[in-house]
Design a protein around this nucleic acid. Structure first.
Lengths: 327, 327
DNA sequence: TTGAAAGCGCTAACAG
DNA sequence: CTGTTAGCGCTTTCAA
C-alpha cells in the first residue's frame, strides 16, 4: 500500500493540489468549506505530508547533525539528550554521529551530513584539522574547541574548573598532586584545565605533575591497568585531578583495589559532574559542567547562524563544585 | 554561494546530466575519458550530491529513527552508540528521539519520523498503545517489548536474568529480598524479571516482596529519597534486586549513607551491566545485557524488513553475571 | 478564493 | 557509449 500523496488528497477532496498545500501550510485564503473537504480527505487517506519532498523544494531540511566521540560516555550521552530536546522544540531532527575520536570517521560523517543537506552541525568531537572545517562552508557550532574564527564555540570555563579542582585538592592538604589528562576530550580544552592546574600548583609552591593517558574513550580497561600499575608499589601521589569522571572512577577503584583508602590516602577530583555520575557515584568530588546550558547555547547559536542572524562568537558558561567525599 | 548541482557539473564537464549521474552511481557504461572530465568538474566545483533529491526520487531515505527514553541513561546511551555504529556501516543515518517515556512525546516522534520518511524505526521506548503501532504500517523493530505480531522484538533473556539475580542473592545467604521495579524500563520486560524473581523466591521458600518505584528515569533524586526513607529506621531487607544499575547505585549509596555496610548488612544486585557502569562502579554485582548484540540484532532485523526479506520474529540473547562485591 | 503549471536535483526509461 | 526527457511530491508564482 503506497503512501498517499498530495494528489490523492486533492482528487479525493475534489480540489487542486494547490488548495491542499494551502490547507497544509495554512497559507493564503481558503474557504472553510474547502478546508473542511481537504481535512476529511486527509483523514480518510491517512495522508502524511512528505517532508523530504518539501525539503527538496525549500532547500531546507530541518536536520541538524551532532558529532560526538560516543554517546556511551555520560557527558556526551547527556549532551546529546539536551541538544535533541532543545532542537525538537524548534522543529529540528537530530542525526547522531559517533566519531570515536577518529579523524577519518569524523571526516566521513562531515561528508555524509553535507550529502544529507543538514542545516547545521554541532561538533563535540574535533580531530579533523581546523582548515578542513573552514572549507565546508556550513553552519557549524563547536563545543569545547576553537576551530576557526567563523565557528562559534560554546564551553564551560575550563580554566576556572581546573583551578577549582586543584584548589580543592590543595585545600584538603594534598602536596603531591597528579593531573591526569587523556584524550577523553579535546586537547585544547584539556589544555586550559591543565594550565589552570599548573598555575595553581605553582602559586602554592607545589610541583605540577602531568600524566597523559592516550587511550581512546572506550579503552577503559587499559586505563585501569595503567592506574593499578601506578599504585602497585606505593602511592606516589596524595591527590589526583582526573580528566573526567570516568577516569576519576577508574583511579578510585584502582586505589581501593590496591588497598588504599580514599580520601585518607588519596584524594580525587573529577570533571564533568553529569547527572548520571552524581547519581551513581555521588561521593565523587567533581567539577560540574552546565551541560544543559551548554546544549541550549549551542543550539541557539546554531539556529541563529542558520537563520542568518548575527550570532555570538564565543560563550563561556560557569562551572561549579560538587563536593563529595573523595576530596 | 549556492551549492553546485548536477547540472553545473554537467555544464562544466560539457556532458549531459545523465552522464554525470552515471559516473556518480557507477552505473551503465561510460568511457574513461568522460569519467575523467566529470570527475574533474566535480572536484573543481566542490560538488556534493544532494541525497535529499536522490531520496526524493528513489523514495528511500536511508534514515532510521531510534526512540529511547533518554540517551542520558547508560543503557540507552550505549544502545544508541552500537545501533548507530552498525547502521552507519550499512549506509544509514540515525535520527535520535528521546521520548522521556512520555506517551504524547513518543506519538509525536512517530509522526515526525514518518513525515521524514525514515525507512524504519527501532523502538526502545514503548508507551504508545500496541494498536497504534499496528496502524503505522511501517518497518518497526522493538527492543524489549512485544508490540504486535508484525513487529519483531529483540531482547535479552529477562527471565533468566531475573532468576540469576535472585539466585545470586539467595546464594549469598539473603532471606529477605526486595525486588525493586521502576518504570526505568518497559512493564512487560520488568514483568519477566519479576516473575523469575517470584518463582525463584518461592522455590527457595522465601516470601517475594516487590516495590514499584514509579518515578521517571530522570527523577533520580526522588528515588534516592524513597530509599533513604526506607532505610531510615532499620534495614527491612538483607538483599535487593534493583531494576537497573542506576537504581542499584541509588540503593547502594542510600544504604551507605544510613550507616549500613554493603554487602555485610545488605546485598545488592543490579541489571544491565553496561560497559560504563562496570567501569565506574565495578564492584556492583549485576546482570549483563549483551547490548552490542542486541543492537546488531535489531539493526539486522530492521534491514531485513526494509529489504523485504523474511525476518525473524523474536530474538532472545543470553545474559551473564558480573560478579562484583555487592552480592 | 481557487487552479494550472513550472521547477527544486536527481534517476531511469528510451532513443540515438 | 551518451543524451533527451519525464517525472518523484511539494510549493509557489501567476492567472483566472
Amino acid at each position: 500500500m503506497k503512501k498517499a500523496t498530495i494528489h490523492d488528497v486533492a482528487k479525493k477532496a475534489g480540489v487542486s493540489v494547490t488548495t491542499v498545500s494551502r490547507v497544509l501550510n495554512n497559507r493564503g485564503y481558503i474557504s472553510d468549506e474547502m478546508k473542511e473537504k481537504v481535512m476529511t480527505a486527509i483523514k480518510e487517506l491517512n495522508y502524511i505530508p512528505n517532508e523530504i519532498a518539501r525539503s527538496f523544494f525549500t532547500n531546507k531540511t530541518n536536520f541538524v547533525g551532532l558529532i560526538v566521540p560516543t554517546t556511551s560516555n555520560p557527558f556526551f550521552g547527556e549532551l546529546t539528550f539536551h541538544i535533541e530536546k532543545k532542537l525538537s522544540t524548534k522543529g529540528y531532527k537530530l542525526f547522531i554521529c559517533n566519531s570515536i575520536n577518529d579523524v577519518e570517521t569524523e571526516r566521513v560523517y562531515l561528508r555524509l551530513l553535507q550529502e544529507k543537506r543538514v542545516d547545521g552541525i554541532i561538533v563535540g568531537s574535533h580531530n579533523v584539522d581546523i582548515e578542513e572545517y573552514e572549507g565546508y562552508g556550513m553552519n557549524i557550532v563547536s563545543i569545547d574547541r576553537e576551530l576557526t574564527a567563523n565557528i562559534p564555540i560554546v564551553q564551560c570555563d575550563n580554566y576556572d574548573g581546573g583551578r577549582l579542582a586543584t584548589e580543592t585538592l590543595i585545600g584538603s592538604g594534598c602536596k603531591r598532586i597528579l593531573c591526569i589528562t587523556g584524550d577523553a576530550r579535546v586537547k585544547t580544552t584539556a589544555r586550559a584545565r591543565v594550565s589552570a592546574y599548573e598555575d595553581r600548583m605553582r602559586e602554592a609552591g607545589l610541583e605540577p605533575q602531568i600524566m597523559e593517558i592516550s587511550f581512546s574513550l572506550s579503552e577503559n580497561d587499559k586505563k585501569r591497568v595503567v592506574m593499578e600499575n601506578l599504585f602497585s608499589e606505593s602511592l606516589p601521589f596524595d591527590g589526583i585531578f582526573a580528566g573526567d569522571d570516568v577516569m576519576a572512577s577508574i583511579v578510585y577503584h584502582a586505589a581501593l583495589k590496591k588497598g588504599y583508602k580514599v580520601p585518607e590516602d588519596l584524594k580525587i577530583v573529577g570533571f564533568d559532574g553529569t547527572e548520571m555520575m552524581r547519581t551513581v557515584f555521588p561521593t565523587l568530588t567533581t567539577i560540574i559542567q552546565p551541560i544543559e546550558q551548554i546544549a541550549e547555547a549551542a543550539v541557539d547559536l546554531l539556529l541563529d547562524k542558520i537563520g542568518e542572524k548575527k550570532a555570538e562568537n564565543k560563550i563561556v558558561l560557569p562551572i561549579a563544585l560538587h563536593k563529595g567525599s573523595t576530596a
